[in-house]
Structure formats: structure tokens, C-alpha cells
């Protein structure tokens, strides 16, 4: 049987590799081969649209893979903004402090927000 194909990159490892290793190996050169990288779930995901109603907020739960929550400083408010429930910061002492940034997004690593 005639086998006809092209090879762009081959790597051989001396042991089993994890799922993450496979994804990393794919992502590393995906764009070079016209592919999009595999994007996992965000580790920070904040979505105010699920709040039960308007009013003060004390914490904003992180539904991303990192977990934890963002604690309110000042008096951020949940407001209906053009039909969308959103957290409004007034620019005077309002912000929210979340979990510690993990090593994967410190140093010189790629990151997206």
C-alpha cells in the first residue's frame, strides 16, 4: 500500500506524558500549521449577570478554575446597566481583591485578560 503524507514535526519522548503536556505540545506550534491553540477554561471568570438583583456587593465569586472570590473594597454596586446586571465601581475607593495570582501568570509567561 502506498502511504503518502508530509511530516512537519516529530518528537519522541522517553516516557508517558500528561494531557497537559500533549496540549502544550500542540499549542506550541498550532499557529504555524494553521490551527488555533486549545484554550482551556479561564482560571478567572467573573460574571455579574447571575446576581439575584441590584444592590451592594461584598464578594464576587470566581467561577473560573482557580476558584475563590473577589472581596469588595469600598462600596461597589450591582446595577442594571442597559439591561445587564453589572458591578459598578465609582472610581473613588471601589475595587475587588481576588485570589493570589498563580505562578502560571507571573514572571514572563503569556497571559490573556
Amino acid at each position: 500500500m502506498l502511504v503518502y503524507f508530509s511530516v512537519g514535526l516529530v518528537r519522541v519522548y522517553n516516557n508517558a506524558i500528561s494531557d497537559d503536556d500533549v496540549v502544550s505540545a500542540y499549542d506550541e506550534h498550532a499557529s504555524a500549521y494553521g490551527r488555533s491553540p486549545i484554550i482551556g477554561p479561564p482560571f478567572v471568570a467573573l460574571d455579574s449577570r447571575g446576581f439575584p438583583g441590584t444592590g451592594s456587593i461584598t464578594a464576587w465569586t470566581n467561577i473560573g478554575s482557580l476558584g475563590g472570590s473577589f472581596e469588595a473594597i469600598g462600596d461597589p454596586q450591582i446595577e442594571d446597566v442597559d439591561g445587564v446586571l453589572a458591578v459598578t465601581l465609582d472610581g473613588v475607593g471601589d475595587w475587588l481583591v481576588g485570589p493570589t495570582a498563580p505562578d502560571s501568570v507571573t514572571g514572563s509567561r503569556s497571559k490573556h485578560g
Partner: peptide
């Protein structure tokens, strides 16, 4: 000084 509804952060580009 703004309203924020959704924030997502990934560890990949």
C-alpha cells in the same frame, strides 16, 4: 470608574 459584567483570564495566549 466603570461597570464591569464579565471578566475572564486565561493562562494561555
Amino acid at each position: 470608574s466603570m461597570s464591569i459584567a464579565v471578566v475572564r483570564v486565561w493562562e494561555q495566549a
